[in-house]
């Protein structure tokens, strides 16, 4: 039967080995995958300002991007492709609460400049290679 010291060896050994593999894979992802899949050359000042706005208003508290966030409002990974610039600008700059089908969004009333920063951020987000996410609806009607 397993002894206590064997159990401890299993714990320490397993932890060290899997953590080493994890660090190796992470290193590989950050140095090879990120440059290939995320177009870091397109991370302009505007995109970065957009990311700051995204975070400082906690947009993730209702929406998701890359499928991460809250489930109260739509997924925004492909919003640039889906809605286009004009529609997005109207929503972002609106001083009246935007409430599609009655579900309210805070009326942020962003300036034109802020709105275009956010739109550039979403454009960059939409171009990241996400291994096929979000899926295309595949049920035939």
């Amino acid at each position: 039967m397993l002894s206590k010291s064997q159990a401890r060896t299993f714990f320490l050994g397993g932890t060290i080995v899997t953590f080493a593999i994890f660090l190796g894979l992470s290193w590989n992802s950050l140095s090879n995958d990120v440059p290939k899949q995320t177009n870091p050359q397109n991370l302009t000042d505007q995109v970065i300002r957009g990311k700051h706005l995204w975070e400082s208003n906690n947009c993730m508290g209702c929406h998701t991007i890359f499928g991460e966030g809250a489930y109260y409002a739509p997924e925004l990974t492909k919003v640039f492709e889906r809605r286009g610039e004009g529609y997005m600008k109207a929503v972002l700059t609106s001083k009246q609460p935007w409430a599609p089908r009655g579900r309210k969004m805070v009326a942020y009333g962003f300036t034109d400049e802020e709105a275009s920063d956010l739109i550039k951020f979403f454009k960059w987000i939409g171009e990241v290679d996400l291994n096929g996410f979000p899926p295309k609806p595949d049920v035939k009607r």
């Binding site: 994890f22 090879n32 291994n131 096929g132």
Partner: peptide
């Protein structure tokens, strides 16, 4: 530890 990978499926890193 390696299960962390289930958060990395669709965020812009490799298929591994």
């Amino acid at each position: 530890i390696l299960g962390t990978g289930h958060h990395y499926y669709y965020i812009g890193v490799g298929k591994i």
